[in-house]
């Protein structure tokens, strides 16, 4: 029951924050991907940095349970799937989490995104054996690995570097990157002329 309560509290907070930062708004996603407004990119980089620094810092102080880490496997399909997700993300302006939040916030196109998503997930469920047989789901570089070796973690390290220190340093690096990133990398594109 506690876990359901936590799901409600953390889930609701996540949904609300995605709405407030503009991540569930396709216009902000589009401007970020067009590189004309990196506001959302800076938000994401800062979030990764803050989350990483707190988690690894907390581990080093013994306040965060290393056992809560859950590292996904690396395989060729991760890159291919990333390409597909990226293309669809650009077209729709939604990813799985933000699409769900957008639909709840009243966006009707997001309902179509979810419907397409359910069909896409079903299509993967049906075609999974072929991917499995292709070898593209086989682990590369050790599979479920972190960049350094995190003390007490059940996941191996890609390198022997101390994983908690590396995580803290990378976390800080993401924060610095968030501050260093300019507001845009490409000048504003042609603004549509309002209809006369």
């Amino acid at each position: 029951m506690t876990s359901i309560l936590l799901a409600i509290v953390i889930g609701a907070a996540f949904g609300a924050v995605l709405d407030r930062i503009g991540a569930s708004n396709p216009n902000w996603i589009g401007r970020m991907l067009n590189l004309t407004n990196l506001h959302l990119m800076k938000t994401i980089l800062l979030a990764i940095g803050v989350g990483s620094a707190l988690m690894f810092g907390g581990q080093m102080l013994g306040l965060v349970d290393v056992g809560h880490m859950s590292v996904k496997a690396a395989y060729m399909g991760v890159f291919l799937g990333g390409l597909l997700l990226g293309a669809g993300w650009a077209v729709a302006g939604y990813c799985p989490g933000t699409g769900v939040v957008a639909a709840a916030s009243g966006r009707k196109d997001a309902l179509f995104f979810i419907a397409g998503g359910l069909l896409g997930a079903a299509a993967y469920m049906v075609t999974y054996p072929a991917w499995k047989a292709s070898g593209l789901l086989d682990d590369v570089a050790g599979g479920k690995v972190t960049l350094g070796t995190v003390p007490g973690s059940k996941f191996d390290g890609l390198t022997a570097l101390p994983g908690d220190v590396l995580g803290l340093v990378l976390g800080i690096a993401f924060v610095v990157l968030a501050f260093a990133l300019p507001d845009n990398l490409v000048g504003n594109r042609a603004v549509a002329q309002p209809a006369e």
Partner: peptide, 13 residues
């Protein structure tokens, strides 16, 4: 877009 996003997400894990 939703179809491609979720197909890709499941392939990527």
């Amino acid at each position: 877009g939703g179809f491609v996003v979720l197909y890709g997400a499941r392939l990527a894990g």
